[in-house]
Structures are given as structure tokens and as C-alpha cells.
């Protein structure tokens, strides 16, 4: 038995050495700290168009990185960066950011729009964006306290068809007007934690 395991380990390391991209694993922290250049220290973004990553579920972060890497999710720069990592790295980074404290963005929002958005959230979105958007079901991201500029960019990608919606999401988003969607995003911008 012991010999057999050793054999497996040897074969596995030989495989790793043979593949060009293999590297010794940096810690989750080491992999994640360089992300701060665009996503803020420990994943709390200070810039309005790059999202805060802190306290998202690990699953939503890993899912996002895989989709950036494959090109399924449109990006300017993120796809090029995601190609620098493997699934094990995504898991490590997802785990790291999921454990960081979330600081809601301090940003202006329209109160009237936010009030209308609150109703829409309850009727259309609350089944996946749980707890007023503070938590996400499965791979759903945190919405509450996220930057409004970022949310608008992503919603624009969804409605223009560039970013693929799940059937579940499509069913809830498609009936909403542009004004409704705007209100919804103001609502998420208004929720502090």
C-alpha cells in the first residue's frame, strides 16, 4: 500500500513538472495580495468600477474566475489575469476573500430609486440574492454595498447579451425596464452592513 501511494505521488509530481504552468503553490494570502492593486486591500475596493471581493462566497468567486478564464464572462483585463491561475489557485483565493470583512462602499445613491428598488428586490431577486443582497445563494454574488458604477457596468453587459444570464436570472431580469433595473441597483448601493 505504502509503495503504491509513493508511486502515485511520484507520478503526480512528474506530471506537474512536465506541464509548463505548474508551480509550487503560493499561500492563499500570497496569491490574493497582488489583487489589491485593483480590488483594494483584502478585497475591499476603493475604486468605483472594480468590485469589492471581500466576504463573497467562495463559490461565487471561484465561479467568476473560471468564467473570466474561459472567456464566458466578458472583461477588459480580468480574463487576461485569470489565465495566470489554475483551479487550485481559484479555490485558495476564493477561500481567502470569502473570509475577509466586507466594508460597504460609502457612495451616494438616489433614495427614491432605492425605495422602488427595494420592492423589486423582494419580488424578483431575493430568492438568490439573500438577506437584502448581503449574501448570495450558491454562486450568486454579494450585491449589498457593492459599487454602483460596477453594478451598472455588469447589468449593462447582461442586458446587452454580452454576459450570459442563467435561465432563472433571465426570467426575473427580462421583464424589468431600464428604469426598474436602475432603481434596483440604487437599492443595493443603499444597503449598508
Amino acid at each position: 500500500m505504502k509503495m503504491k501511494w509513493k508511486g502515485w505521488a511520484l507520478a503526480a509530481s512528474a506530471l506537474l513538472l512536465a506541464s509548463g504552468t505548474a508551480r509550487a503553490a503560493p499561500t492563499a494570502e500570497m496569491l490574493s495580495d497582488p489583487c489589491a492593486g485593483c480590488h483594494g486591500t483584502y478585497g475591499n475596493s476603493a475604486g468605483t468600477t472594480t468590485p469589492t471581493l471581500a466576504n463573497h462566497s467562495k463559490q461565487s468567486l471561484v465561479d467568476a474566475m473560471k468564467k473570466f478564464k474561459s472567456g464566458e464572462r466578458p472583461a477588459t483585463i480580468m480574463g487576461r489575469i485569470a489565465k495566470g491561475y489554475g483551479d487550485v489557485d481559484f479555490e485558495a483565493m476564493g477561500d481567502f476573500f470569502s473570509k475577509q470583512k466586507f466594508h460597504a462602499a460609502n457612495q451616494p445613491f438616489d433614495k427614491k430609486k432605492a425605495a422602488r428598488g427595494a420592492e423589486l428586490h423582494s419580488s424578483n431577486c431575493a430568492r438568490c440574492h439573500l438577506e437584502d443582497g448581503k449574501e448570495g445563494k450558491d454562486a450568486s454574488p454579494v450585491m449589498a454595498g457593492q459599487w454602483l458604477d460596477y453594478l451598472k457596468i455588469e447589468m449593462g453587459l447582461y442586458t446587452s447579451g454580452k454576459r450570459k444570464m442563467s435561465d432563472e436570472k433571465k426570467e426575473k431580469v427580462q421583464p424589468l425596464s431600464a428604469t426598474d433595473l436602475e432603481a434596483l441597483l440604487h437599492y443595493y448601493a443603499s444597503v449598508t452592513r
Partner: peptide
């Protein structure tokens, strides 16, 4: 896309200097 890279550049600057 070109316009997004401008707003992301500004977002980067906010983040990296805050970092």
C-alpha cells in the same frame, strides 16, 4: 471597451494608492 479601460484605470489608481 476603450472607455471602460479609462474608468478602470481611474479605479486602479484609487485602489493602488489606497493600498
Amino acid at each position: 471597451f476603450r472607455k471602460l479601460e479609462v474608468v478602470h484605470a481611474k479605479s486602479w489608481f484609487r485602489n493602488v494608492t489606497t493600498d
